[in-house]
Amino acid sequence: MASTMIRTSASLRTLNLTRVFCTTACARAPTMWSITKNQASVTFTWLFGKLGRFSVMRRPSKPPHDFVVPVGNPILRGQALAVDNRNIKSKETQEVLDQLVKVMRKKGAVGLSAPQVGVGLQIIAVECTRKQLDLVPQEIRKIREMQEFPLKIFINPKLKVTDYSTVVFPEGCESLPGYQANVPRYYGVTITGLDREGKPVAWQVTGWPARILQHEVEHLRGDLYIDIMDSRTFIDSSWERKNF
């Protein structure tokens, strides 16, 4: 789950190729830097071939991915499978857990599900740090009952509503980056499941953490917040900063 108030823009990297070759005065005084047009063509072809392979290598083709799967990928609309208790400590499952946490923290998210990194298993991770909270105005933190909590992993989670009171606040998702809408959620829930060691865990919460848990568990059913949002409030959260 994306925090609607916690976002940082990714830095843009540009590659300057304007000084790769020097051909000034080559006709008068050939030097070791002199190249022919054919040589330049071959060299550029080789260089961009290398860059192309590098860009592909940065995003592995097999899950768990090092990026968040966007809306449109069928895995986000599928039913995640339960993890066999005997496989929780396996190398493959532990790699999924590590990657899930890594991507969540890289994106600055407060929650993420395994399907969002391309793995159709019932696993979620949630975390809200003091640094993330400090980016949110105090009045908003108070109204939404936002609070800091340590990293928690739930395998095969089960969610039970403890308070059916409905609260509506803006909500975003890393699979729909840059957008948000008002979403109704139950005020209180209890979640049970297994941790990364296969031990039973439970957590009873209200307010902000309860919203995050409901959001992430929905991902395991193939549901998204846009299915229950107030469609009239759906916006590009950065529209005010854009130049048209």
Rank of each mutant, 00 (worst) to 15 (best):
N73H: 10
I191W: 09
S175L: 04
D223V: 02
V189K: 06
R185C: 05
K50M: 06
Q132F: 00
H65Q: 04
Q99D: 04
K106V: 01
D98K: 15
V103E: 03
L159S: 00
S231A: 10
H215T: 00
P60Q: 13
D227E: 05
E197D: 13
T192A: 03
T24L: 01
F54C: 12
P115D: 09
E197Y: 12
V56N: 09
R28S: 13
T31K: 07
R144Y: 15
A25S: 11
N156S: 02
K102C: 09
R53D: 09
R59E: 10
T166K: 15
T18G: 09
A10W: 02
I143K: 15
I235T: 13
W208E: 02
I226Y: 05
C128M: 12
S90A: 10
E171H: 08
W208C: 11
K242G: 06
N38M: 13
V201R: 02
V126M: 08
H215S: 07
R58T: 12
L112G: 07
W33Q: 12
E148N: 02
E216L: 00
P60C: 02
S11G: 12
A40C: 08
G108S: 03
G198P: 06
V205W: 02
L12N: 14
E197T: 03
F48C: 07
K152Q: 14
R86M: 14
D84W: 11
A29G: 04
S34L: 00
A25V: 08
G207H: 08
L81T: 05
F44W: 14
R105H: 10
L224H: 03
E171A: 11
W203A: 04
G108E: 07
